[in-house]
């Protein structure tokens, strides 16, 4: 699917929600628990997760791959592993700026 910043993705296997912070130019497949994530505006048909893909996500964490140019923010935590093109997306180390307001 073609991602764009601001787009919300919903899991088909659990309550996981991810929002796109940085989108790659090319199309990618984003999955949760082994099943494709869909636009949060469409209610995904509930599907059974791949039991081998249950590493879970943490609320507020950023998941990113520099080489792909993708960053997703977890806005609702779930149990499924979030993967892009079949590879688990690692948590991005936070480098917060000093609070400015």
């Amino acid at each position: 699917m073609k991602l764009r910043p601001g787009r919300q993705l919903a899991s088909a296997v659990d309550g996981t929600r991810m929002v796109v912070v940085r989108a790659p130019a090319e199309e990618v497949e984003v999955t949760c628990g082994g099943r494709p994530m869909v636009d949060a505006a469409e209610a995904p048909a509930p599907t059974a997760a791949d039991p081998a893909r249950q590493d879970g996500t943490l609320l507020g964490k950023r998941y990113a791959d520099e080489a792909l140019g993708i960053e997703l923010l977890c806005t609702k935590a779930g149990q499924g592993t979030v993967e892009v093109n079949g590879a688990a997306l690692p948590v991005k180390e936070a480098k917060p700026l000093p609070a400015s307001d």
Binding site: G60, L97, S100
Partner: peptide
């Protein structure tokens, strides 16, 4: 909404 949320996500870490 996208201006303000982008500002927050670009400069702040959740629950930091």
């Amino acid at each position: 909404h996208h201006n303000l949320t982008s500002y927050v996500l670009g400069t702040v870490e959740f629950a930091a």
